[in-house]
Computed example of a mutant assay.
Amino acid sequence: MDTAVTDATRTVFSRLTEWFSRSWESAAEADMIASLDDSTIRSIAHDCGISPDQLIELAKAGPHAADEMVVMMRALNIDPSEVELRLRNEFRDMQITCSHCASKSECRKDLARGTAAETFAHYCGNAESLNALRANPDFLIA
């Protein structure tokens, strides 16, 4: 069998496996949150600084719903660890925005192509915040 075909098959298989795994994680997280009583959900949401509805939405979106945000920050030469450390609430709000984004496909493609820094402002719900962070040398990758 042709090696290129075998490699392509493995790549497609690994992507499907990863997708199923993420879907399973998302469902398990949502089920766990749904099994909690209202008081516990309110308490957890309060501790996170979000509403109970946002907590449930985030659980449904899954644990990787905002992964693109950190990758985008790095593509823009922003240090995500520094932002999270110094601007915890803003970082959380940006994660929430990212988790609800309808442009994830475009974002992922631009990140993969290395063109995200030039194009993100056209579709990213966090563009204004990201541009403000890029303008502040305290948050740039050294």
Rank of each mutant, 00 (worst) to 15 (best):
M1D: 02
M1V: 14
D2C: 02
D2P: 12
T3N: 05
T6V: 02
A8K: 14
T9V: 00
T9I: 00
T11Q: 07
V12N: 08
F13P: 00
R15I: 06
R15H: 05
T17V: 10
R22N: 11
R22P: 08
S23P: 09
W24T: 14
E25M: 06
E25R: 09
E25N: 08
S26D: 13
A28Q: 04
E29R: 10
A30F: 14
D31T: 09
D31V: 03
M32L: 12
I33A: 04
I33N: 07
I33D: 12
A34R: 14
S35A: 13
L36W: 11
D37F: 08
D38Y: 06
D38I: 01
D38R: 11
D38E: 15
S39D: 07
S39N: 07
S39R: 06
S39H: 14
T40L: 12
T40V: 15
I41C: 07
S43E: 04
I44C: 04
I44L: 11
A45D: 05
H46R: 06
H46V: 00
D47S: 08
C48V: 08
C48S: 09
S51A: 03
S51N: 05
P52C: 07
P52W: 03
Q54D: 14
Q54A: 05
L55W: 08
E57D: 15
K60W: 14
G62A: 01
A65P: 10
D67M: 05
M69N: 12
M69T: 11
V70M: 10
M72Y: 01
M72H: 01
A75K: 15
L76Q: 13
D79H: 08
D79F: 07
P80N: 11
V83P: 09
V83N: 06
E84V: 13
E84Q: 15
E84W: 13
E84H: 07
R86G: 04
L87V: 13
R88H: 15
N89I: 08
E90R: 12
E90M: 11
E90T: 15
R92A: 11
R92H: 10
R92C: 02
R92L: 08
D93W: 06
D93N: 14
M94A: 12
T97H: 10
T97R: 15
H100I: 05
C101F: 12
A102F: 06
S103T: 11
S103K: 03
K104Q: 14
E106D: 02
C107S: 02
C107H: 03
R108N: 10
R108G: 03
K109W: 09
D110E: 13
A112P: 02
A116L: 04
A116S: 09
E118G: 05
E118V: 11
F120Y: 11
A121F: 13
A121H: 12
A121K: 04
H122P: 00
A127V: 02
A127Q: 03
A127W: 04
E128C: 01
S129A: 06
L130D: 01
N131Q: 09
L133G: 07
R134G: 10
A135T: 01
P137I: 06
D138V: 00
F139C: 01
L140Y: 02
L140C: 07
